[in-house]
Amino acid sequence: MTGQDGVEQAALDWATRTGDPAFAEWETFAAWLEADPRHAAAYHAISAEVAEMTEAVAALPAEPTQREGTPRRPDPRRWMAGALAASLVATVGIGAWERRAQPYAVETADGTTRTIALADGSSIALNGGTKLVLDRRDTRLARLERGEALFSVRHDAARPFRVDVGQDRLVDIGTVFDVTHAPGVTRVAVGEGAVIFNPEGEKVRLDAGRALRSGADGVVVSDVAAHSVGGWRSGRLDYDGAPLREVAADVARALGRPITVAPDLAERPFRGTIQLDGITRDPAGLGALVGARMQRAGQGWEIVATP
């Protein structure tokens, strides 16, 4: 009979092999598991430990922390590798090897989400179709290039967390807040604490339960249910009068399918809650929910007026 070290080694070997999406020798693996109950126990423990640590590795910056004075050569393969990864892509930003700002981008494809834990205990949850640029040197700064992110920020009065979005800047005051950015429109909703919108400009303070919309027609502040902020993470989208085109963009991001809105409906306001579960099972159901009709359009759908 194999000793405990032998079991441990064999379990690691099987965990390595079964972890491969191409693994096919399930019957051989089953026979190994059956041979001794310690085999399954060791395999389960190793797999769980690797899974937990993999989550941690995924939350780390895409490259190991760089030591002072040892600039790393950019590896062109890494760029290609990033472009190839289908579901989520973490690429190294331009200038990552420069001494000052060390930006790196974290992106999610439509229909996927990802949470990044920052070293200071803050975390950022990315909705689908989102691109966020962080800085290894200045970990209290983020730039939302597109999509939606929920920031849960550990407050430090000496080093407030800032989010740049479009031409605007948000500064936290101990906070959970959600930011959405699409060309020409930025939306902010505060779940806990408070945020200052453009401290150098409009200087609008948003407390928990307040939301702001900044677009071509200026800045509008409204109320929002504080507990619903970031609801997309549990598959729940709440709206209080957002135009249908924004609702459609949110749902499309979450589902990973294009959803467009007929021009005559694009600005129609929507109030209500969308459960993404239901919409995933039955995209046509979105039509009834918003008082319109869904029509197949290419890979996705178009929301059109009911006849």
């Binding site: 939350a59 834990a117 205990g121």
Partner: peptide, 11 residues
């Protein structure tokens, strides 16, 4: 702690 993210990975 601002922690709606219950599964926050320990530092």
């Amino acid at each position: 702690d601002p922690s709606p993210e219950r599964a926050l990975i320990a530092r």
